[in-house]
Amino acid sequence: MISKNKGVTMFKTTTVFFAISVFCFVIKALIPTTVDSNGFLNEPFFFLIPMGYLFLFLSLLIGVLTLVIKLTKKIN
């Protein structure tokens, strides 16, 4: 059902998505946020938070699907 090369490719994809997710969260944590004189919060890289969660979700989804496919292949 799933070839060995495709399994390795899916593992690499999962690892890359997870690394991008960690990178987004680390960069967001390192960039300072400021409050201006009017009381507005300035977060220049706020978009990294949803992107980090998106890549984390994708890595978990692909990882779980790869695991399920491998387990069902071993059972059959």
Rank of each mutant, 00 (worst) to 15 (best):
G39Q: 10
L58C: 15
G39Y: 10
L41T: 02
T66R: 13
F46P: 01
F57E: 07
K4H: 07
V16S: 05
F47Q: 06
T13A: 10
T34N: 11
P50L: 06
K28G: 00
F47M: 13
N5W: 04
A19E: 03
I69K: 14
V22T: 13
L60S: 12
F25C: 05
F25D: 00
A19H: 03
F11W: 06
T9L: 15
F25S: 04
K73A: 08
L61C: 12
S3L: 06
T15K: 11
M51Q: 03
F40V: 10
V16I: 15
P32G: 05
Y53I: 12
F11S: 14
T14M: 15
D36F: 00
K4Q: 09
L56S: 10
F46H: 02
L67R: 06
L67V: 07
M1C: 08
G52D: 02
K74F: 09
G63I: 10
G63E: 04
I20T: 06
F23E: 02
V64M: 15
F17W: 11
G52E: 01
V35N: 05
L65W: 10
F11G: 05
I62C: 08
L48E: 07
G63T: 11
T9P: 00
K73C: 01
S59Q: 04
C24Q: 08
K73H: 10
I31W: 08
N38C: 00
M1V: 10
L58Q: 10
G7T: 03
S37I: 11
S59H: 00
L48M: 09
L56T: 09
K74L: 13
L30P: 03
I31L: 11
L54G: 04
I31A: 07
I20D: 01
L56M: 14
T72D: 13
V26L: 15
V22N: 07
V35P: 00
L54A: 13
G39F: 06
T9V: 06
V16R: 08
F40I: 04
C24E: 05
N76S: 09
G39C: 09
F40G: 01
G7W: 02
A29T: 09
S3I: 03
T72M: 13
